[in-house]
């Protein structure tokens, strides 16, 4: 795979290679954070020194459907020993799907010193690098966070509805079966948490995984532009809203469009299909 610096990304510094991480495992100014979908993966073995940030226990409000507030974020950062000037390197399973989700939530609190390890766990494992079951402990930090900023990279349903009515660009990053609505109609299998199947009118179907190579690394900027711009007609000149089922997969696409292609106005609709597909009266399209 081509070096990160040669892939034409708008913000190449947001990605680090497995080589780079291996050379910085003991860097005191760095905190390596693993974030996975599968709750067993971290405990079964992780990068030496890496802490776990769990999407359910650490990033979500335990009662309301929302993310943690300022106090909760400060508590999390203090617990994992992250100071305001600590660089956080995220990685995880599923081609960094949940790592990008955690990255996005951290941006709601303005923690700009954040990077993603290209290739995630998969590449680290395939390279035969060290994994450990030893859970590290760091001295609590004195992290101070601002209030969560939902105004720039997050979309709520009213904004999405206005965006649809204005003919704005939307990217649906779920599977083609979810996009078409057919998944909800498979007998004997669980539904996806929504009463209606289909997609938000006008949305382009670009499953999130198309942005990565087989080894889990991100595709080059030229390859990504071929997908999102030449094929789907998106443009950095226009605002884009990405969504999936609950906003995790779409945070991966948010990361790609924002940091790898340099789109200045991308929002993640974390209400996503579990909200839209249950809302009364909103427009829905079915089919491919």
């Amino acid at each position: 795979m081509t070096a990160i610096s040669q892939r034409g990304y708008a913000n190449p510094g947001v990605l680090v290679s497995t080589d780079w991480v291996a050379a910085h495992l003991n860097d005191p100014d760095l905190r390596i954070v693993e974030s996975n979908e599968d709750p067993l993966v971290y405990r079964a073995g992780h990068l030496p020194g890496a802490v776990e940030v769990d999407w359910a226990r650490d990033l979500n409000d335990p009662v309301r459907r929302d993310y943690l507030d300022r106090a909760g974020f400060e508590g999390l950062m203090r617990r994992i020993g992250v100071e305001n000037d600590t660089t956080v390197v995220f990685y995880g399973d599923k081609n960094n799907w949940w790592a990008c989700y955690a990255f996005w939530v951290f941006q709601l609190f303005g923690h700009r010193r954040a990077k993603v390890m290209d290739g995630g766990r998969l590449k680290w494992e395939q390279e035969g690098r060290e994994l450990t079951r030893e859970v590290p402990s760091y001295p609590p930090s004195s992290y101070r966070a601002p209030d969560r900023d939902d105004s720039t990279i997050r979309a709520f349903r009213d904004r999405v509805l206005a965006h649809v009515e204005a003919g704005g660009d939307l990217v649906d990053v779920r599977s083609p079966q979810e996009f078409s609505g057919e998944l909800l109609h498979m007998p004997d299998y669980p539904n996806e948490g929504a009463l209606r199947g289909g997609h938000i009118p006008g949305a382009r179907s670009v499953p999130w995984g198309r942005a990565v190579n087989e080894d889990g690394t991100f595709k080059s900027a030229a390859e990504l532009r071929a997908i999102y711009e030449q094929e789907q007609g998106l443009s950095p000149e226009r605002e884009v809203i990405a969504y999936c089922r609950i906003g995790e997969r779409s945070s991966h696409t948010w990361f790609v469009l924002t940091h790898l292609l340099g789109y200045p106005k991308v929002r993640n609709y974390d209400g996503s299909w579990t909200e839209w597909g249950n809302l009364v009266g909103v427009p829905i399209e079915k089919g491919r």
Binding site: P39, A56, D188, Y189, P190
Partner: peptide
């Protein structure tokens, strides 16, 4: 389907829940 929570607890993502429930459903089918 919800037998999965007896083993994994409730802190499963929706995607993970669906996948594990899908295994139960396929065995049931």
């Amino acid at each position: 389907d919800d037998v999965i929570y007896k083993f994994f607890g409730n802190e499963l993502s929706m995607g993970k829940s669906m996948g594990l429930m899908g295994m139960v459903a396929m065995a049931r089918s």
